[in-house]
């Protein structure tokens, strides 16, 4: 029972965690990225569409990463270089993602609503027989590669940001771009690269959302998870461990919501849980120091 809950939490938090890491990278580079929602949606669509065409989960994940990185390029060009307003571009990208995926769903697959296809299979899970019932261990085992990759990325991101020269430069660029430029850093090239990399991460998030446990694409299936990732970046102060913690909290709220739904609570109410918890967390933890960026 507890094992199942924990396992579910880990599954539910993964897409948000991947997207939040993308958001945190952009935040560190000084680009306010509110297009996570749209980029995830594109990733999910591309993953499913590639699955239908080739039946290969590996290819699906790779093309999701690639296409989403391309999709992020307007933000990379517009937001990273001076002149474009990242908020406007973010809103535009979110709406473009919603429109484009729905349009292509109809135009290519002749489907409205949900795309299910026998060729679309969920990513394989690493199940080790006999260990599933061992407390905690059982919950940690039995996920797909993207889940473990997301955990690995927390540490990679941490090391990149705080231990490597490039991470140091990124933090400097995000904090005082003019000072970084004065010391010889190519600010806009860094920002462009990071935003595109973040696009790739969102592609992973979308792939996990579509192929993690359900193996389908549905219109607007992100349902606000990209926005929760934006909040997770704020709550975790763009620190890899901080956002991991925030996403864990979100996964828990989501899982408990689903549990309560099983107990007969209407799902409309439990659907609110992640958003309400997110808001309450922001209110409770307070977002001091965020005022200057309030829009």
């Amino acid at each position: 029972m507890l094992n199942m809950l924990l396992s579910q939490v880990l599954d539910l938090m993964t897409p948000v965690l991947l997207a939040a890491m993308a958001g945190a990278l952009c935040e560190r580079a000084g680009v306010f990225n509110i297009a996570l929602e749209g980029k995830m949606l594109v990733g999910a669509f591309v993953a499913v569409a590639t699955s239908v065409a080739f039946g290969s989960p590996v290819l699906a994940v790779l093309s999701a990463v690639l296409c989403t990185a391309v999709f992020a390029s307007p933000l990379a060009l517009g937001g990273a270089r001076l002149g474009g307003d990242p908020i406007v571009i973010g809103i535009g990208l979110n709406l473009l993602a919603a429109g484009l995926t729905t349009y292509l769903l109809g135009a290519i697959f002749g489907v409205t609503g949900t795309l299910v296809d026998p060729a679309v299979t969920a990513l394989p899970k690493f199940v080790i027989a006999g260990l599933a019932d061992v407390p905690v261990v059982g919950a940690i085992l039995g996920h797909n590669a993207l889940v473990y990759l997301s955990w690995l990325l927390i540490f990679v991101f941490n090391i990149y940001l705080f231990r490597t020269p490039w991470g140091l430069r990124l933090r400097g660029i995000g904090e005082v771009p003019s000072a970084a430029a004065a010391m010889g850093a190519n600010v806009s090239r860094y920002q462009t690269a990071i935003v595109i990399l973040a696009g790739g991460l969102c592609g992973l998030a979308g792939a996990q959302l579509a192929l993690g446990s359900v193996a389908l694409f549905a219109e607007n299936m992100t349902a606000g998870r990209g926005w929760i990732a934006v909040v997770a970046v704020m709550l975790g102060r763009a620190h890899p461990l901080g956002i991991a913690l925030a996403c864990l909290g979100f996964g828990l709220a989501d899982a408990v919501g689903l549990r309560l739904q099983g107990q007969g609570l209407p799902n409309q109410i439990t659907d609110i849980a992640p958003y309400a918890i997110t808001l309450l967390a922001m209110i409770g933890l307070g977002l001091r120091g965020m005022k200057k960026r309030s829009v």
Partner: peptide
Amino acid sequence: FRQFPDLTVWENLVFQNEPRRGPLV
């Protein structure tokens, strides 16, 4: 001053000119 207030003194000083050990600073 052309400085990064959130970073430490040494991080400010070696910015763009970091001593390395392998891929790490």
